[in-house]
Design a protein around this nucleic acid. Structure first.
Length: 546
RNA sequence: GACCCUAUCAUCUAGUGGUUAGGAUACAGCCCUCUCAAGGCUGGCACACGGGUUCAAAUCCCGUUAGGGUCGCCA
């Protein structure tokens, strides 16, 4: 390749290699410190797998005293969406995944190894591409998309491995004159890596999560610079993670098969490759088959789904930790008061499986525990935050009745003990507490009477008798003694045992009496502790309901 | 089609040559109990299949089957 041709391909002045290397000094970190990153694309959509990767990367870096940074991979200008930076930053920070370096919500860089948005690094990639070109490790390719489609079709027909390699790599052997002719004709071009790999040969890859993998060497001349002058993922990853000093790359296992290529690129540029860890994607069951949680068909693949439903952030984090490493739940049992982020995560303990099915039942169970560990005030704040965004009329009500709601949320909430566990997500709270307000309270007496095998007259009698006896200051025992008394007066058993032994002697038992009151007070047959509910409602409301 | 990965209860998994195959979720039953939830106790439920290697295999090897991934100027 003559310098003249190189100049024609890269007419604009580029920084020199030593200039660039000077801008990215080696990081000075304690020994054992790991440098990781999360590298989403600004498509306006955050996949739950991105949170998974972020969580692992963040923990690995910070637990080792290293650096965790955010890099925005926007080399595909077609997929770039307005407002995507906000989605990325909000999604990560919401789950406590805080980068030491990267791009903030306004698109501003912070940290010394930037810029952290790939489109702003164009000249850096081009400088290294030019170097590869000069070193004879890259070449311009003028093949059009149609040419490549045709090539693949032929390969398929002949049962050949598809791709741009060996005799199919037409532009690899272009003479200088041919290149000049193409350039003169104004043909668009891409830059391809001239692979020295042999597909017959194997190379051993050590994956942090999957262990040793034997892969064939890469012999594909892949594109490193697209016709718009921006790099492909492969090239950008290699250049960036070298310059930014990444030591451990954690990414989805759709990248496993590119590792030979990536290592080849590192070698071609004279660099040391980072360590790689590939995790299997979250899956879901579809018609009896597992498949990857997909953006198109699965709403729960989008992290926003969990915001809309109001899943506590800690619940999702704990669920994901649990998937990353099943010993999390043992650790949690031993350390009920610690933050999830205190959990020590080791690579050799990270589960290496085909990909877990996303299990909502497990998430819900974890979520109930998480909510049960919170105080009523904390729950109130979280519900209010959620409602402000997704249910403004409910938010209004929460604000107007703050103290009342906190008392409601405090019912049977005994922190650290056997607390009530019935809130899974903030979305549930409004309906669960609706009977505390007259405008959202209703009761269908006739059908309940039928269900309890009582007449409405029976219910009325019980109600008026209790009404006369009710005193909001009664403690639980005194309160219940009154209920027993009413039971006795009306021919109900006061003890469950007695009733069970001889049901025919009684009209019902004390629980039926309590249930009558429960229905009148709450409009439903199931509720938290009735005594506590009455205390929270107060005398006026209880009497009016009765 | 080629290459790579994976295979333990319904689900997430522990397990690295000798275990009554452990835990969690879910499920069922009992206890507690004013209902529900919670809690306590108990129970059922698994090493994909076929060959090897070995005194001994969930564990090592080979094959089969099944699932997943990759083979783009997308990441």
């Amino acid at each position: 390749m003559t310098p003249e041709i190189i100049k024609r391909l890269f007419p604009n002045p580029l920084p020199t290699i030593s200039e660039i290397e000077g801008r990215y000094p080696l990081r000075t970190l304690p020994s054992g410190a790991k440098v990781t990153r999360v590298a989403p694309s600004p498509t306006g959509y955050m996949h739950i797998g991105g949170i998974y990767a972020g969580l692992v990367s963040e923990r690995i870096a910070h637990q080792s005293g290293g650096v965790f940074f955010l890099r925005v991979e926007d080399t595909d200008q077609k997929r770039k969406k307005e407002g995507a930076q906000e989605v990325i930053c909000n999604s990560l920070s919401r789950y406590g995944i805080i980068a030491d370096e990267g791009v903030d919500i306004d698109g501003n860089d912070f940290g010394l190894y930037g810029p952290y948005t790939q489109s702003k690094r164009k000249e850096i990639y081009q400088a290294y591409a030019q170097k590869l070109l000069a070193d004879g490790l890259a070449y311009p390719c003028f093949c059009a998309a149609e040419d490549l489609d045709l090539m693949r079709k032929i390969q398929e027909k002949q049962s050949q491995r598809p791709g741009y390699y060996a005799k199919y790599a037409h532009c690899r052997s272009l003479s200088d004159d041919e290149i000049i002719a193409n350039l003169d004709a104004g043909k668009p071009w891409v830059l391809r890596f001239k692979s020295g790999g042999n597909n017959e040969k194997k190379m051993l890859i050590k994956d942090l999560m999957k262990g040793e993998i034997n892969m064939p060497e890469n012999d594909l001349d892949i594109v490193i610079l697209k016709s718009d002058g921006l790099p492909t993922y492969h090239f950008a990853h290699v250049v960036d993670d070298h310059l930014m000093g990444t030591t451990h790359v954690i990414r989805g296992d759709e990248w496993v098969s590119s590792v030979p290529l990536h290592i080849q690129l590192f070698v071609a540029l004279g660099w040391k490759a980072p360590k790689y860890g590939h995790y299997a994607p979250l899956q879901k069951l579809d018609n009896g088959n597992k498949r990857k949680l997909s953006k198109r068909s699965d709403p729960e693949a989008n992290i926003v789904y969990f915001w809309e439903k109001g899943y506590p952030e800690d619940a999702l984090v704990e669920y994901l930790f649990n998937l990353i490493n099943a010993s999390f739940e043992d650790w949690r049992r031993l350390n009920p008061d610690k933050k999830a982020f205190d959990f020590p995560l080791n690579f050799n303990k990270i589960s290496n499986t085909a990909g877990a099915l996303f299990d909502f039942q497990k998430l819900h169970s974890i979520s109930k525990d998480v909510v049960a560990r919170m105080t009523a005030e904390e729950v109130y704040d979280a519900v209010l935050n959620w409602a402000k965004e997704y249910k403004s009329d409910f938010a209004q009500r929460l604000i107007e009745h703050k103290d009342y709601y906190i008392s409601i949320l405090n019912i049977e909430r005994n922190i650290g003990k056997k607390s009530r566990k019935d809130i899974v997500k903030w979305e549930d709270v409004e309906a669960d507490t609706s009977y505390f307000f007259d405008d959202t309270f209703s009761v269908d007496l006739a059908s309940y009477a039928n269900e309890l095998n009582l007449t409405i007259e029976d219910m009325k009698k019980i109600s008026s008798e209790f009404k006369a006896l009710f005193n909001v200051n009664d403690d639980k025992n005194a309160w219940f003694e009154k209920i027993k008394m009413i039971a006795q007066n009306h021919g109900f058993a006061t003890e469950m045992k007695a009733y069970k032994e001889n049901p025919s002697l009684y009209k019902g038992n004390v629980s039926d009496v309590a249930n009558v009151l429960r229905i009148l007070i709450t409009g439903r047959t199931q509720s938290p502790d009735l005594h506590a509910i009455m205390q929270v409602m107060g005398t006026d409301k209880v009497l009016s309901r009765l």
